[in-house]
């Protein structure tokens, strides 16, 4: 990450503008607190220190930013800020539709839409989009019950 992804200008701009970056060695006590067993481990926290998203292993720049957007969306989702979560997922899906995390973003966008309106339509739309665009994704399977709504 330190050799390829973090020096990338787009990644650096994204991180510096939208997050507070912290870097800690895996030999430090904080790593034990977070039960880190392998590096790189990337964790997205809310500003109270609660974990909402974690990844392990290398990410190239074009896949790292959508991963961070997913994590930011999950911070908003977990704290019931569903409109904000939808905004993060929309950015991800508009700018990085081929990302490996796009199907999860579609799924969580649908759930966020339901949670904010109590209308089942966003769930069904999420399933239809997943089925059409990512038929092999596990998130399409997870959304299968919404096809019955």
């Amino acid at each position: 990450m330190g050799a390829v992804t973090y020096p990338d200008e787009k990644v650096a701009d994204f991180v510096m503008q939208r997050m507070v970056p912290v870097q800690v060695g895996a030999n430090m006590p904080l790593a034990a607190e977070f039960k880190v067993k392998w590096t790189p481990t990337i964790v997205v926290l809310d500003y109270y220190g609660k974990e909402h998203h974690r990844t392990v292993g290398f990410f190239a720049p074009e896949e790292f930013i959508p991963n961070l957007l997913l994590g930011m969306g999950k911070v908003d989702f977990d704290t019931d800020l569903f409109g904000n979560a939808i905004h993060q997922f929309d950015i991800l899906l508009e700018e990085y539709p081929k990302s490996g995390v796009a199907p999860e973003a579609i799924y969580l966008r649908g759930v966020s839409g339901y949670k904010s309106t109590h209308d089942a339509k966003p769930l069904k739309e999420a399933y239809e989009k997943l089925k059409a665009e990512y038929p092999q994704s596990e998130w399409t399977m997870r959304a299968l019950p919404y096809s019955l709504l």
């Binding site: 020096p7 939208r18 507070v20 970056p21 800690v24 895996a26 990337i42 109270y48 220190g49």
Partner: peptide, 30 residues
């Protein structure tokens, strides 16, 4: 260039002040 914090407590304070989430990277120190 990313300017990293090394102290999570300080980063959380910044996060609250700037209304930003935290990116916490655990790296292999070698």
């Amino acid at each position: 260039m990313i300017t990293w914090e090394s102290d999570l407590t300080k980063a959380l304070g910044r996060g609250q002040a700037e209304k930003k989430p935290i990116l916490l990277d655990f790296f292999n120190p070698g």
